Amino acid sequence: MDSTWLVLISLALGLAVGAGFVALLHVAERRGARAAEVVSPTIPDGIDQVLEALESAGVVLDPSHNVMKASPGALSMGLVWNGGLVHPELVELVDGVRRTGEAVSKELVITRGPFGDASMYLRVRLARLGTRFVLLLAEDRTETHRLDEVRRDFVANISHELKTPIASVSLLAEALDQAADEPEQVRRFANRLTTESGRLARITQEIIELSRLQAQDALATPRLVSVDAVVAAAVDQNRVVAESHDVTIVVGRRSRVEVYGDETLLVVAVHNLIANAVHYSSAGSHVGVGVKHFDGIVEIAVTDQGLGIPEEDIDRVFERFFRVDQARSRHTGGTGLGLSIVKHAVQNHGGDIRVWSQPGHGSTFTIRLPEAVQNVAGTHNAVEANGENVDTYPAG
């Protein structure tokens, strides 16, 4: 009997000890899970979807500044690399938000990526996300900053460009008054006055044209436009000037293609290219105007045999008021806005403009436009008809 009780007591003690160990294991497991949550906290639900939807950059950081999540924008802007923030300025802002708990907004100038040297203008906002995370949002304002600089430069340039003809008109008016009794002087000053007033009118007109092209509704009602008609009108506008410069304009075969757009704007664009080619061509040379079309693309090329453009200036020729040869441009009455107008007119029609040039051998400017859909099926017939004629406008 005594031995039986001893066995029962031993079993009871064994069960009690086992239950105690099991309970301790459960407690340890729960504590381990809580510790794991502290070490590797989870991001609140929905943050992944929000970051994916952001057009700007978004980054979520843990207490050790490790990047837990980053939007595609943050990666493309080079804010995140090797699991952390690239820029010390951003890390410092994160520290401040974590320390004070208050949201922060700031504008920064930083480099793009860990190894880049291009500057990037950012507007950033940081705030706590829950108790352990910090959310960083960044908006790239580099393009906005560039456009602000362009506007400032435009105002400065236009003030300078208008100042010269206005001052000339004023001085010539005074000279006319003083030379009232000298008919020869009056005629000379009157001719100068006409030249300067014409230059002032051209600058004003081109500024108005450029402003219209930059408006959102520049092509509010596009229509089918004959490219041959555009080229013919532009050539006709330059015929007299070409003859006076002893320059021959040679026009290629008719294309019989059409594009969607504004005929007046396209005539202005082609006219400006031809006018530039004539002004920069020497006496006895030729300016060629040709149209090609292939794979739904229409190309209008204007080629001259002039001085050409230095390689370092090719990327700048479409800037407002930029002139390759300042002295020659002023002598020929150039405003420096013509190519900028061409660029905006072509872009408004969904196309682009390209330039090839070699100093001493001339330049070729090529306008590329999408061909009108209605005409794509007739491309083969138009190509067959290309052999009809070649129009030339010889110098006077």
Rank of each mutant, 00 (worst) to 15 (best):
T194D: 15
V150H: 10
M120T: 06
A179D: 09
L193I: 12
L172N: 12
S159M: 11
T142Y: 09
L135A: 10
A180M: 08
L162N: 07
A173V: 07
G113N: 00
R151L: 14
E184L: 10
F115Y: 02
A180H: 14
L171R: 12
L135Y: 08
D153P: 05
T131I: 03
T195C: 13
F154Y: 11
A180K: 08
I166Y: 01
V186I: 13
R192Y: 15
L136E: 04
G113V: 00
H145C: 06
P183H: 07
T142R: 10
P183R: 07
I166R: 03
V124D: 03
R146F: 04
T131Q: 08
L193C: 15
R152C: 04
D153I: 10
V186P: 10
S170P: 02
E149C: 06
A156I: 11
R146I: 09
H160Y: 09
V186H: 10
F115V: 01
S170A: 14
L147D: 13
G130I: 02
V134D: 08
L137T: 14
R128H: 01
A180P: 02
L171E: 12
L147Q: 14
F115E: 02
V134A: 10
E161G: 04
L172F: 08
L129Q: 05
P183W: 07
D177M: 12
I166H: 01
V150D: 13
S159H: 09
L136W: 01
S119D: 04
A167D: 09
T195D: 15
L137A: 13
S168C: 05
E149M: 11
G116R: 00
F189E: 11
A180E: 12
R141S: 09
A173C: 07
P114R: 00
F115P: 00
K163I: 04
D117Y: 01
Q178Y: 06
S170W: 07
M120F: 00
E182V: 09
D153K: 12
G113I: 00
N157C: 06
T131A: 11
F189R: 06
Q178S: 14
A190N: 14
A118E: 10
G116N: 03
I166T: 08
N157V: 05
R125M: 03
A179H: 04
H160R: 14
E139V: 07
R132M: 05
S119Q: 04
I166P: 01
G116W: 01
R128A: 05
I158V: 13
D117F: 01
R141A: 11
E139H: 07
L172C: 04
R141W: 05
T111C: 00
N191R: 15
L122G: 00
T164L: 11
V150E: 13
K163G: 04
Q185C: 11
D177Y: 10
R187D: 15
Y121L: 02
D181M: 09
D177V: 11
E184H: 03
V169H: 06
E174Q: 12
S168P: 03
L135R: 07
G116H: 02
F133L: 07
T195L: 15
H160A: 14
L176N: 10
A118W: 00
R128Y: 00
T142P: 07
F189P: 04
N191W: 14
L135Q: 09
G113D: 01
E182Y: 05
Q185E: 15
L129H: 04
A175N: 07
L193E: 15
L126T: 03
L172P: 05
D148Q: 13
R192L: 15
D117S: 02
L129K: 02
K163H: 11
S159P: 03
